[in-house]
Amino acid sequence: MTPGDRILFFVLLGIGLLSILSLRLLFAPGRTASIFVSNRLVKKISLGSDETHLIHGVAGAIELRVAPDGIRVTQSECPEKICMRQGAISNKGQIIVCVPNQMIITIDGEAGHSLDAVTP
């Protein structure tokens, strides 16, 4: 190992660690959720908070819960409760839809990249 080799090793190590950091930023979870009712933006919620919100949909009231694992519908006055069963969302591009209430929750940011299968 010459000194040049050692410098090269640490430079490449630095590039590797830097790429981890930059990918963290690039593929970061979304920061805010937008709530639409009948295609109109009614609320923007920051995902960092820990609180409950009440939204008035077309079919009745909807209760949203923001927690560290994302945003979820906890109560809804709709017949099928599909929106409640969709669970929590936190990544860019994910959505929750409640059709009877005409409500859509989206996570802001560009469409998320998630890998299905990669075979190089």
Partner: peptide, 28 residues
């Protein structure tokens, strides 16, 4: 080269960049 070629020609998605850190460190 493999990440670049795989990302932009074979897979066609920059999401392959997610493999970059593990590949960089292992190649070292």
């Amino acid at each position: 080269t493999q990440v670049t070629v795989a990302g932009f020609l074979v897979v066609g998605d920059e999401a392959i960049l997610i493999l970059l850190p593990s590949m960089l460190l292992s190649s070292l």
